[in-house]
Amino acid sequence: MATTKLNTSIIDEEVTKEELSLVRSYLLLTFIHKVFERDCRVISRSGLFKTPQLYMELVSGATKKTSLMLQEVTRELSSHDLKITTVRQDQRGVEALYSCRGFQGEMNILWPGFRREMMLRMRAYLGLSTELSILSREENASELALTI
């Protein structure tokens, strides 16, 4: 669940749902891109795979998709005069401080929701099923560890 705080009393007129969605997408894509890049490095260096090039190709393709999407989101942020000034993470979740046309805001997303959305998006970028029943079983099996 994401919470958003704005340092203004005119929230709806100043920062739209679309703009808040851009901030959220920027955060998710940034984390996902770094996870894919890290996974590619680990696959190539591990020596554990018989055909690492196949797995690297799969993950590299997803990395390219996230890179392109991140570029598009960055362009959209700019067109909305929206700047993300700080991104922090702690035990509770991810926090972004941003300014939108002069108004300062803050978005906080707790880890459970952030991880779940990351997994959904990562599966889509990898061309895997995003069926909820499959995801529920996998989430119980292991948590996605994030330190970026």
Rank of each mutant, 00 (worst) to 15 (best):
M1R: 11
M1C: 09
A2E: 06
A2G: 06
T4W: 04
T4H: 08
K5I: 05
N7W: 11
N7L: 09
T8Y: 01
I11M: 07
I11C: 11
D12R: 13
E14Q: 06
K17Y: 14
K17V: 09
E18S: 12
E19I: 02
L20A: 06
L20S: 04
S21E: 15
S21K: 11
V23T: 03
V23L: 00
V23A: 01
S25G: 04
S25I: 06
L27Y: 03
L27W: 01
T30I: 12
F31T: 14
V35L: 15
E37L: 09
C40M: 06
C40E: 03
R41D: 09
V42H: 01
V42K: 02
I43P: 03
S44N: 08
G47E: 01
L48Y: 07
K50S: 04
K50R: 10
T51F: 07
L54R: 14
Y55K: 11
Y55A: 05
E57G: 08
L58K: 10
S60D: 06
A62W: 05
T63V: 11
T63C: 10
K65S: 09
K65T: 11
T66W: 05
S67P: 01
S67L: 12
L70R: 09
Q71S: 13
Q71T: 10
V73K: 08
V73W: 04
V73D: 11
L77K: 01
L77V: 02
S78G: 01
S79K: 03
S79N: 14
L82N: 01
I84C: 03
T86N: 05
T86K: 02
V87L: 12
V87W: 07
R88C: 07
D90L: 01
Q91L: 08
Q91K: 11
Q91D: 12
Q91E: 13
Q91C: 11
V94Q: 13
V94T: 11
V94H: 08
E95H: 06
E95I: 08
E95R: 09
A96S: 05
Y98Q: 00
S99F: 00
C100A: 07
R101T: 02
G102V: 05
Q104E: 10
G105N: 02
E106H: 04
M107T: 04
M107Y: 04
N108Y: 07
I109W: 09
I109D: 12
I109E: 06
W111F: 05
W111S: 01
G113L: 03
G113R: 09
R116H: 08
M118A: 14
R121L: 14
M122Y: 03
R123S: 10
R123C: 02
R123L: 08
L128F: 11
S129Q: 12
S129V: 03
E131I: 07
E131Y: 06
I134V: 09
L135I: 13
S136P: 00
R137I: 13
E139H: 09
E139I: 14
A141H: 13
A141Y: 12
A141I: 10
A141K: 14
S142T: 15
S142R: 14
S142K: 15
E143G: 13
E143L: 13
E143M: 14
A145G: 15
L146N: 12
T147E: 15
T147C: 10
T147M: 15
I148H: 12
I148C: 13
